[in-house]
Design a binder for these strands. Structure first.
Lengths: 249, 249
DNA sequence: GTGGCTGTTCCCCACACATGAACAACGCTT
DNA sequence: AAGCGTTGTTCATGTGTGGGGAACAGCCAC
């Protein structure tokens, strides 16, 4: 597959994005040599692509080190707000935040990872940004989506590994599969400190035409989400919210 | 410049991003032929790049039409949260929202456009997302940044045109330049329905080592921002906020 | 059915990308 | 301050590949 595809695709584009992705994964800035060696490509090639990406504004050069450029922020915003779920779910997420006085959001899946389309926080108690897991298996919205995904897709994702984030993370295929069955039955997913100690969440998948579009969640610290509120009230609110806008997509 | 640069940069990458940018600018999905004709490139070339970008997850193919993919959302988030201003300003913006009970944010400039690094809204009254101007000249944070930018950069940006958004937009170079001088003197910028009818905002530039890093703003509808609150109270709050974190960057 | 669109594939050649090696610039150690 | 290792940058080259035209196929409207 790759051999025939390579014939009809642009290799240079691929390497350029490999460079960008490498920069995205690193926390710190990085030099040409370092980047080239981690990607196992010649220095000069890395340099040429970095220069090109700089010129386009998607990579930023600070001194002799490179990092992600803000051009990507523009593109990313365009991509997020373009998704059909964004437009329909946004106002409902906002209302969830008001009603529950807790952070809420809407998540979609792409290539086995969770992507936040939109999230909002209660004003006086803003939560951390960018801390949500990219992994599906250890978050409420991720599991809600997984439970609705076709079996072969789930298998693919499981095969890529189930990293352990806390000691409650479901990191074996069998444990995860069993949980997903229960989630599919009930139509709701819970997260109890599986991606971060002290964090809880409830999520409901958004299904349309038998395809899962994403999931809506409400999150919060364990002390704000316990017993009936966590297990019944908030689930009920989310379910009715999702029902409401699933019909009028 | 372009001729010599073309020798040491990757053309294929450039066209790939041209394709992505074209998709970002269009509201609707687009087909190969249509895209190729607007970009004035051969169909087959457009097709090859689109296919490559699809494979990488940065473009999404729905039926026979193409649109931006969610891979860009990931990269965009990485880029935003990586900016030094993001980390330092975020919590202060959150506090501005609490204190003023109005939307606030932090903006940086890239390539003559305004990019929102972070913004937040009061819980019960969430504002529209993605509606802020990409233009610098008609928003409070944009003007705050312009006022601190070197003259040649300002000239470049003015040369690219000053689109009129409302009848209050400063759309002539002389009017804008005059205003920027006053903003530079006072260290604060006001926006009075210049980018959208009924919207007001106050912004303060963040300057470090004589270089402008970005601007922090508080926005709101005209009826929530008038007289002393608009002209003195909120400006004072923002200035003291910015002063506080400029010192400990 | 038919015609005019699309998207997709084919194929070939110029040429621009990938590459290693040479060069220059930095910064650390002494 | 000088030297040396490291890094970034440039150069030169052949070869793989991206660009582009044109042919093919698939859709939809009429």
């Amino acid at each position: 597959m790759s051999d025939s595809d390579h014939q009809r695709t642009v290799n240079a584009t691929r390497t350029s994005f490999t460079v960008v992705e490498a920069l995205a994964e690193r926390e710190d800035r990085v030099g040409v040599t370092q980047l080239a060696s981690t990607l196992d490509i010649p220095k000069s090639t890395a340099y040429k692509h970095l220069t090109t990406l700089c010129e386009l504004g998607y990579v930023h050069k600070e001194g002799r080190k490179y990092e992600l450029g803000l051009g990507l922020a523009d593109l990313g915003e365009s991509a997020r707000t373009r998704d059909p779920l964004y437009g329909t779910a946004k106002s409902h997420v906002d209302r969830l935040v008001s009603v529950t006085d807790q952070p809420a959001g809407v998540v979609v899946e792409r290539r086995g990872n969770a992507v936040d389309l939109y999230r909002a926080w209660p004003t006086n108690r803003p939560a951390a940004h960018g801390t949500n897991s990219r992994y599906l298996h250890c978050s409420a919205p991720g599991k809600a989506i997984l439970a609705e995904l076709p079996d072969d897709r789930v298998a693919e994702i499981i095969d890529r590994g189930l990293p352990t984030k806390t000691d409650r993370t479901l990191s074996t295929p069998s444990a995860l599969r069993e949980k997903l069955d229960r989630i599919a039955e009930r139509g709701i997913a819970f997260e109890r400190g599986e991606q971060r100690e002290g964090r809880r969440a409830v999520a409901v998948p958004v299904v349309r035409n038998e395809r899962v579009m994403g999931a809506v969640y409400v999150a919060g610290s364990t002390d704000r989400m316990k017993s009936k509120r966590f297990e019944e009230d908030i689930p009920g609110i989310i379910i009715s919210t999702v029902n409401r806008f699933t019909s009028d997509i």
